[in-house]
Design a protein around this nucleic acid. Sequence first.
DNA 1: TATTGTTATACTCTATAACTATA
DNA 2: TATAGTTATAGAGTATAACAATA
Lengths: 160, 160
Amino acid sequence: MPDLPPGPASVHNVLMNHTGFLISRMGLVAAKQFGERLESLGLTTRMWGALNVLASEGEITQHALCKSIGMDPSSMVSTIDELEAMGLVERRRHPTDRRAHALHVTEAGMETLARGREIARTAQEELLAPLNDEEREQLHALLLRLAMATRKEPLAVAPR
Amino acid sequence: MPDLPPGPASVHNVLMNHTGFLISRMGLVAAKQFGERLESLGLTTRMWGALNVLASEGEITQHALCKSIGMDPSSMVSTIDELEAMGLVERRRHPTDRRAHALHVTEAGMETLARGREIARTAQEELLAPLNDEEREQLHALLLRLAMATRKEPLAVAPR
DNA sequence: TATTGTTATACTCTATAACTATA
DNA sequence: TATAGTTATAGAGTATAACAATA
């Protein structure tokens, strides 16, 4: 009885035949690699996702942000807490609804966001290194069509 | 101030521009959909991954199985416990090493595996529904090249 | 009566370290 | 001294329910 299977460890050929497994697997790798790079900014993938959407939407409520990225409201509290503690986001008064906050991205938040986007480019370059430009566009287009079909799935930005 | 961003909820346009995000996102969707379907067999994605590799490798040790799918040995214990409780796998005596087990897939295990593969086909059909056959092959080939480049990453079969 | 944000809680998944019995 | 399997434990990450303030 062979004690170890032949070939490099960690992923088995049998599983590689399934596209769904490959997507799941590469999704974990991508999230992990990006998350490790984001640590240099003191950000998690969840914080980055929230900051990113917030900057593009302007001042919105936590509730709206939750719906926008599919995060649970109770999880959003701690995410915004962390961003606020770092001075990247402020909870400002909502002009009309005294229950709600108007989430505001600070100047420091915009700077961190810019550096995060640079990191995202680097991480993407690392992830897609085996592919040329045309192939990268192909992959993106194919994934985008899949994503558009499952847009309503209430999944958070990052796996962990 | 707009209370909700325009368009359908749960995933934001800004994030859709990143291939890494799309892969991560679709990986979660794929794993979730497959996991829900596997419940009908009483299996988790982890159990299915272990059973699948085990059947293709014959009788190997838990240690070898761990290396083969990138699962932690301590997590493997409960995974095999569950498979054994369902009568799909047996811990048999290793012929030469009294510390180790020879993991054996039972006949019931092979039958469950066959049904699992049918479920995998169905789930894949659902996931890749927006793509035609040629596009599915393209996507698979592109992901496979990425996966081969990161084969050594010690990540488990399924995110949760 | 419903909604926003918050807190407390529980549950899952995973990783770490220590332990045993063998090698 | 190292290895296979196990156990116990702790740490993320997430989901659920209840709550106060306000609509």
